[in-house]
Amino acid sequence: MDAILEFAWLLIRIVLYTLLPLILLVAYYTYAERRVIGAMQARIGPNRIGPWGLFQPFADVIKLLLKEIILPKEANRYLFLIAPILSIAPAFAVWAVVPVGEGMVWADLNAGVIYILALSSMGVYGIILAGWASNSKYALLGAMRSAAQVVSYEIAMGFSLLGVLVLAGSLNLQEIVNAQAGGMLDWYWLPLLPMFAIYIIAGLAETNRAPFDMAEGESEIVAGFHVEYAGAAFAVFFLAEYANMILISALTAIFFFGGWLSPFEGWAFLGDSWLRQSSVFWFMGKLAFFMFNFLWIRATFPRYRYDQVMRLGWKVFIPITMVWVLVAAMFVFNGIVVRGA
C-alpha cells in the first residue's frame, strides 16, 4: 500500500514540477513567438485578450479543445489517433534525464545522453504515421520529407554530441555540466565551436522548424503531415513541436553552455555576489536565450530547398563533425582541455 501511495505521490510531483511548467511554457512560447516575430516584422501581434494579449494562449487552447476532431473517411482511424500521442510522449519522456539545476533531475542516468538520442529519435514515428494514416498526398509527402530529414540530421546531432562526450568523459548529463565548471570560457561552446553551430542548426532540422520546415512547407504541401488534423489532435502535434524546441534549447544549454553554471564563476573581483553562484536561474536564462534563437532564426531566414537540406546534412555537417571529434580528441590528448574538469 505504501509503495502505491509513494508511486502516486511521485506521479503528482512529476506533473507539478515538470509537465505543468512545461505545458505553460509551451503556451507562452507560442505567444512569445507571435509577439517577437510580430515585432521583428513591424507588426503588433496578438494584443486583444487580456493585458498585452497575455491570455491569448488560453483562448487558443479553449478554441482548439472545443473544435471537432475530424476523422477523414478513408483514414486509418487507429493510427490517425495514435500518431499525435506518439509524437508528444517522447517529447515529454526525455525530460526525465534533463537536469535543470544541481541534483534537480528525475533520473540521474549514467547513459543519459544515449537515452536522449534514443527517445528523440522516436518522435519521427508520430509524423510518419500521421502522414500515412491520413491517406492524403500532401500528408504523405510531408511525412516522407520529415522522416528522411530527421534520420539524416540525427547523425550530425549524434556526432556533435560525441565531441561533448570526448571532452566530458561521461554520458551522465550532470557530470557533463560539472565538467564545464570555471566560467564561460570553460564551457564547451569554445573548444567545440563548429559542433555547437551544427548542433543548433541540426536542432532546427530535428524539430522541423524554419528554415528546415520541409515537413510543413505551407507554400508547397499545404501543411504537410498534419493537414488532415483538426481540434485537439492538431493541438497535440503543436504541443509536441514546441515541447521539442524547448527541449533542444535546454540540451544546447546543458551540453555547450554549462547548464546551471554561472558564466562569471572564475571572476574573483565580483566578490561573493549572486552573479558567481550557480543556480537554476542561469539555466532558465540560457534556456530563454536559445528559445528566442529559434524565433529569431524563423523570422530571419527563408525556407531551404529540399535537396539542399539533405546535402547540407550529409555532405557538410557529418564530415565537419567527424573531423572535429578527432580535433576534440587531440585537445584532450595534448591537455589543452582537461577531460572531465
Partner: peptide
C-alpha cells in the same frame, strides 16, 4: 544492461524501423 537496452531502441527503433516503415509506405 541499460546501455545495450537504450542502444537497441536508438539503433533499431530510431533508425532501422523508420527506414522499414518508409519503404513499406512507399
Amino acid at each position: 544492461a541499460e546501455f545495450l537496452g537504450i542502444v537497441l531502441v536508438l539503433v533499431y527503433v530510431g533508425a532501422v524501423m523508420v527506414l522499414f516503415l518508409f519503404v513499406i509506405m512507399m
